[in-house]
Amino acid sequence: MSRTEVPPGTARAVRVRAGDLVRVIDVEGGQVGDVFAFTDSGTEPAEHHSAAHTRAAIDRLFPAIGESFVTDRRRPILTLVEDTSPGEHDMLIPACDPARYAALGAPGHRSCAANLAEALDEIGLSFTGAVPQPINVFMRVPVGEDGRLSRLTASSRPGDAVTLRAELDCVVVLSACPQDLVRISAGRLSPLAIETVHNGGTRS
């Protein structure tokens, strides 16, 4: 097993093979994370996890245990295999970006969109398309009877984790969301971690 620490407000990318397990851990509790997944092919990946295609495939807002996240080509890329958190996650809200913070009066603020580009660059990859809608782990966005969305503070506890199985060779990026102007994360920003386990043993 290998572990990658994701400091508050930053992102890290890991390469995994089909069959590997990827565990996303909320180290201190109450921290939202944006998860992105791209097929691992070439220096500029094109196929990626798609929230819209996933919702269409599973007929729900977020997969249940045993169900898969799919790509924009409708292929399973990650499967949710375990969740020790309260189970409150989101695939409706886009990644925070410079325009979002400019609208909130904080130009230059770190964002998940910029974090994604930085994390991919660190492993020699780039993505020039529109930022994919992420898998927002530990993010509470209930839908009211009137269809209105609420953004509530994350209820995940220290050590809570979501475990995903890679269905394709892929690059997984995790951003410890830097949003501190809207209280989607509890208290101060805190770290996340990624643990990967190769299906045949330890992955270096």
Rank of each mutant, 00 (worst) to 15 (best):
C112Q: 03
E195S: 03
V131I: 13
V24N: 05
S190M: 00
E167T: 00
A161S: 12
A51Y: 00
A56L: 14
E88W: 12
A193S: 13
A18S: 14
R151D: 12
R75P: 09
L168R: 14
I58S: 09
R140P: 02
S155H: 14
V32D: 08
L125S: 09
I194M: 11
E5Q: 10
E67F: 02
T128D: 15
Q179T: 14
P134C: 06
S175T: 05
D59W: 14
E44Y: 04
S175F: 05
I65L: 15
L120V: 03
D34S: 00
R140A: 10
R203P: 02
E44G: 12
R203F: 08
A18E: 11
A52K: 09
R140V: 11
A99C: 09
P191K: 08
S41P: 04
C112R: 02
V182D: 13
L149F: 15
A113G: 01
I65H: 13
R55N: 08
D160C: 03
R15E: 15
R157S: 09
R157N: 06
G124D: 07
F127M: 06
N136D: 13
D180F: 05
S155P: 05
L152S: 07
L92V: 08
E145Q: 07
L181M: 08
G30Y: 01
P178R: 04
L125E: 12
G30E: 01
I58D: 09
S50Y: 00
A13I: 09
G66Q: 06
D90G: 04
T128E: 13
E28K: 13
T39M: 10
V81T: 13
E122W: 03
C170D: 04
L189A: 15
E167K: 01
G124S: 08
T163Q: 00
P63D: 11
G29P: 15
S41N: 14
P76A: 13
P178G: 05
T10S: 15
S126Q: 08
R12P: 03
R15V: 10
M139K: 11
A113F: 02
D97C: 13
S175P: 02
S175Y: 06
C112H: 05
P142Y: 05
S204H: 15
E145T: 09
A56G: 12
V24D: 04
T10I: 09
V137T: 14
T54E: 06
L164Q: 06
G105E: 07
G42S: 01
L125C: 10
A119K: 01
G9R: 12
L78D: 11
